[in-house]
Amino acid sequence: MLWDLGSVLMFMVTSLVIIGITLLIAKLFRRDNPTEEKLTSYECGEDPVGNPWVQFNIRFYVVALIFLIFEVEIVFLYPWATVFKEMGFFTFVEMMIFVGILLVGYAYVWVKGDLNWVLPKPKYTADFDYSNVPRFKKPDAEKARKLQAVE
């Protein structure tokens, strides 16, 4: 294969081979003594609880949809970028029209708030009443004055 994709293929094959050899060497030299504790998921010392397959936020999906559309745009940009230099200014205008039409969609999702990341409402905001939480109780003024007097 006298072609650029051949080098891409060689790159992929080389990386796979290097990873394989590294893992093989590690396999040959390491001690293998698994216990039940060693085989559990690593959770910083905690016992893992529940299913790791948690539900994702729906926001990810909307962002992924928008990402996919603009990726298709990139696919159109790619052949344009290879001929842009020799074909001159008019192609630039053509592509700007193309991108401009898509920017309308971008403005739409921006204005409609689909890109806003809705955060869960934090419990401890500035106006939260800390006086009932034991560890945030204000220091006893009377006690403090007495302590100062003693000193």
């Binding site: 949809l65 745009e73 193309f98 039409i101 969609g105």
Partner: peptide, 10 residues
């Protein structure tokens, strides 16, 4: 195609 993409996006 860009208009089609716009419609798909929205």
């Amino acid at each position: 195609a860009s208009i089609l993409l716009l419609a798909a996006l929205i």
